[in-house]
């Protein structure tokens, strides 16, 4: 094509301009601010304040502990649920209803979903009442304002992603592979671990990466379910930008969150790629 260069330029010009102005430049501003002090002098003091301090490390540890445990629980519940929806459900209309109910939370704000758990997990909420009626506990458990409460909220919000990615992988498996394995004398367990599971591994990895990235950067759920008692990195970032207005220290916190998240996503996609070989 003769005019392909000008066509490309015309097509990419506006998207590139918009994303540079409102995405790249703002992020650069944050990164720059994180490496300077109030007078614009370059410094590493903002990072030193975070990385040389045990309080910040405990916040980082809480954030990543919540991220990792959320991811594991989502896979442990999500895999059987996806299996049930793809392999066990016989009736189309029931599966359809289940898929609608699975997607419904994704179409609802984090606020609404976390608010539902605030109602359920309170001292006199349904969860405590049920536990007491069943005789599992004498006094109401404190769930709101604990890591357990945040964990329940995060698993709830992120479970649909895992079910969808694993379910998609399961639905795409060619049944003849599993039949061949059975015909060649493999037990159902061996067929699962040697054929089915490896074929769904990319789905698990994709779901795990989404869940982890969203769990460590979540703000709304920890803010509502922690009642101010448990602090995660995103809450610290928000405090600096909304009430303390220290953009230098806040910027360093934001960059820290970004770098840790990207590093873990990078490592896990590398591992899953190596594992796939």
């Amino acid at each position: 094509m003769i005019n392909s260069r000008s066509t490309v330029a015309a097509l990419v010009f506006l998207p590139l301009l918009f994303f540079t102005a409102f995405f790249l430049v703002p992020l650069t501003v944050v990164a720059t601010a994180s490496f300077t002090n109030g007078d614009g002098v370059p410094t590493l003091a903002n990072y030193a304040r975070i990385l040389l301090d045990t309080y910040h490390w405990s916040v980082i540890a809480t954030t990543f502990r919540l991220g990792i445990v959320t991811t594991l629980i989502c896979i442990l519940i999500g895999y059987p649920l996806a299996w049930y929806l793809v392999r066990i459900v016989k009736f189309r209309s029931w599966r359809r209803l289940c898929v609608i109910l699975l997607i419904l939370p994704l179409f609802t704000s984090n606020i609404v979903r976390s608010f539902g758990w605030m109602v359920l997990l309170g001292r006199n909420g349904l969860v405590n009442e049920t536990l007491q009626m069943a005789g599992l506990t004498e006094r109401p458990l404190r769930l709101l304002g604990t890591e357990t409460g945040i964990l329940i909220g995060l698993v709830y919000i992120l479970l649909p992603f895992v079910v969808l990615t694993i379910g998609n992988a399961l639905a795409k498996i060619d049944h003849s592979l599993e039949q061949a394995s059975a015909d060649l004398g493999a037990s159902p367990a061996a067929t699962f671990w040697r054929v089915t599971f490896p074929l769904t591994a990319p789905g698990i990895a994709a779901g795990a990466i989404i869940v982890f990235a969203l769990a460590v950067s979540a703000y709304v759920t920890p803010a509502l379910l922690s009642g101010g008692r448990v602090t995660v990195l995103a809450v610290l970032v928000f405090q600096q930008y909304s009430s303390v207005f220290d953009f230098h220290y806040g910027g360093a916190l934001a960059v820290t969150l970004l770098v840790f998240t990207m590093a873990i996503i990078g490592i896990s996609s590398l591992v899953s790629r190596l594992g796939a070989r």
Binding site: V29, A33, A234, V237, Y241, G250, A254, I265
Partner: peptide, 13 residues
């Protein structure tokens, strides 16, 4: 994949 909170803070600043 970018935390929305970070982008929000960046746009504010």
């Amino acid at each position: 994949v970018l935390p929305h909170l970070v982008l929000g803070a960046a746009l504010l600043q």
